[in-house]
Amino acid sequence: MSPQMGDSHRRFLQTIMANGIISEREASSLYRHCCETHKTQHTPDKLDEFIDTINSKLQPMFMQIRKGMCEDSGHQHYALVNTAMTDVTRMSSDYTDNELELFRKTMDLIVASESGTTSSTDILNSADTMSSKKLKKSEAEHLLNRLVHDKWLNEKHGEYTLSTRCIIEMEPYIRTMYQDQVKLCQICHNIAFQCQICDNPKCCIKIHNPCVAKYFKGRTEPRCPACDDFWPHEIPEVRQPHSQSKR
């Protein structure tokens, strides 16, 4: 029997629901806040058990609070995700069918690219090849802004990447739909977009930038964990959890 939910759990769930995704640090302080508000016991290192209790009640509704890493900072995040694909879930009204088609095309471009990014120009060009009702350029630009605002995409200097929220929720979908194209990180075994790639053409393994930082920390001559070739890329610093994290 899983433990019962209390108002502290419900408040925690509501806050994640309203935000879509929160960082581990935010989750920890939110956990404390929810327990204090409803005067229940707070055990700092039991956050994941607290979330498991919520998840056991969410599971029949095909919802889940799922943990995942931000490819940029390496920090853990929690997102509330949908796990079903049914006639009911397709009634979602946030985006129209042609907007969703352009989002899928954007994903195609990002997954197919070496760098895990795609430019706004490429996205706008692919809008011309849509099978559903075409989006005007201004509509497509507006849609990209909304997708960033709703935390499905990240944007930096006109380059778009999949957000942490998107990767956490879409991971099973991406693994199935793009199985020939997508690669897993050699270290953490999650799908990798923002990463370094082994130069050995027979190897080509991928490692997330934050995973590179952690794995090679303190090693004088970095070597590929798969083929043992010299790892030629710059080794980034391990990021402290205090710095602002990107979602």
Binding site: L80, N82, T86, T89, T176, Y178, Q181
Partner: peptide
């Protein structure tokens, strides 16, 4: 009430077009 927003499951799963780029 907070509302629930998601991306997966809001569209039909369709395989991506055959890969055009070469590596």
């Amino acid at each position: 009430a907070p509302s629930f927003h998601y991306m997966i499951g809001s569209f039909h799963a369709e395989p991506p077009p055959p890969k055009q780029r070469t590596e």
